[in-house]
Each structure stands twice: as structure tokens, then as C-alpha cells.
Nucleic acid binder design. Structure first.
Length: 180
DNA sequence: GCAGTGATCATA
DNA sequence: ATGATCACTGCC
């Protein structure tokens, strides 16, 4: 089912993840990072999405239930962190591109020690990776970032997909928390 | 601007 | 089996 409504779900998730807290537990250490940048990759006809050429060993996790962690390796050295979205069987995910302290998807995964061992697991305490709401954080959002619960978010084209064709490379599927 | 770096995928 | 590619980063 490739309905526009379903596409909206991934876009909604990508947008809603902005400002949320990505939590990583490594042993006894817990790292909390506010998500500042995401991108949506939606379905079999999105030419920028790994699923645009069908299911493969690498992208099979994208077809899992929403909340599954999709981590893949690229450029011989970098891990990319994604959260699977949509109904089971529909390949889509949100790439976490950056947080307040770690800008760039590969820097983020390096800092949080995210690699293939998380691929296919579900977000949660058990995986050592989960999302928390910002509500428990005081003084948020900071001055200039909008009212509580209403962040200023930019929508931009996605990064690093020149091969995706005019239609898909220009989609505003990238969400960035506006800085003051 | 472009080199590094190696798994993955398409082609055969 | 082989070659091109790659949702990037860091250094020139």
C-alpha cells in the first residue's frame, strides 16, 4: 500500500523527532542528546531510499515494524542510524542526521558507539537506545526556538543524494531545528 | 577541492 | 568473480 497518507506518517515522525532526546546507554554510562536534524526515506519509489531497488540483505530491516533500528555501513568507515517507520512490509525510515553536540550522521554514531550490533533491534532499554520526550527538560525550548511544544523547524532537501533524480532529490524531506 | 575506505550490490 | 557505488568526513 503506497498511499500518500502513509508517506505522511514517516514525514510526521521525522518532524516529531526534532527536539526529542536520543538516549544511548553504554554499560553504566548514559548519553542524552537532543535531536536537531533528520531525514525521511519513504517507500519503494523514493529513488533516494535504499528500498527503491527492492529488498536486499542490507535494507531488509526497513521492512520491519516501526521503531526498529536500521543501521548500515557506508563509505568504508561510517555507520548511519535510522528509525524504521510505517506498517510492517512498507520500507521506510528516518535517518538521524545530527544532535546538539554531534553534527553529522557518522559523527553521531561514532560518539554514541552505534554500529551493526544494533541493526534490527527495537528501540528500547534492552537495545540500549531509545527516545525520550523533552517534557522533563526545563527551560526548553530555549529562547528564540519557539514556544513550548512548538519548535521552529526548517524543511530542506536531503543531503548527499545527487543520483535520486530531480523529483526525489528536491523533496523537502529534511528537517532541521532552527538555531537562534 | 577531493582522498580515504571497504561492505554491498548489480552484472556476468 | 569483478567493478562501481556510496543517506560521509576530514584535510588540502
Amino acid at each position: 500500500m503506497f498511499k500518500a497518507l502513509e508517506n505522511k506518517k514517516t514525514l510526521r515522525v521525522a518532524r516529531d523527532l526534532i527536539g526529542k532526546i536520543l538516549v544511548r546507554k553504554i554499560g553504566k554510562k548514559i548519553i542524552r542528546e537532543r535531536i536537531t536534524e533528520t531525514e525521511a526515506y519513504i517507500g519503494p519509489h523514493d529513488l533516494a531510499c535504499h528500498s527503491s531497488r527492492g529488498k536486499t540483505k542490507r535494507n531488509e530491516v526497513m521492512y520491519c515494524v516501526a521503531g526498529t533500528i536500521y543501521v548500515y555501513f557506508t563509505y568504508g568507515m561510517h555507520w548511519m542510524l535510522n528509525i524504521v517507520t510505517e506498517e510492517e512490509g512498507f520500507p521506510a525510515a528516518v535517518l538521524i542526521r545530527g544532535t546538539e553536540n554531534f553534527k553529522g550522521p557518522a559523527r553521531l554514531t561514532k560518539a554514541l558507539q552505534i554500529d551493526k550490533s544494533l541493526n534490527g533491534k527495537k528501540l528500547g532499554k534492552k537495545a540500549g537506545l531509545w527516545i525520550e520526550n523533552d517534557l522533563k527538560i526545563k527551560n526548553f525550548p530555549p529562547a528564540g526556538l519557539g514556544r513550548a511544544g512548538k519548535l521552529k523547524i526548517s524543511r530542506l532537501p536531503r543531503v548527499g543524494i545527487p543520483y535520486a533524480g530531480d523529483i526525489w532529490k528536491n523533496k523537502l524531506y529534511r528537517f532541521v531545528l532552527k538555531e537562534k
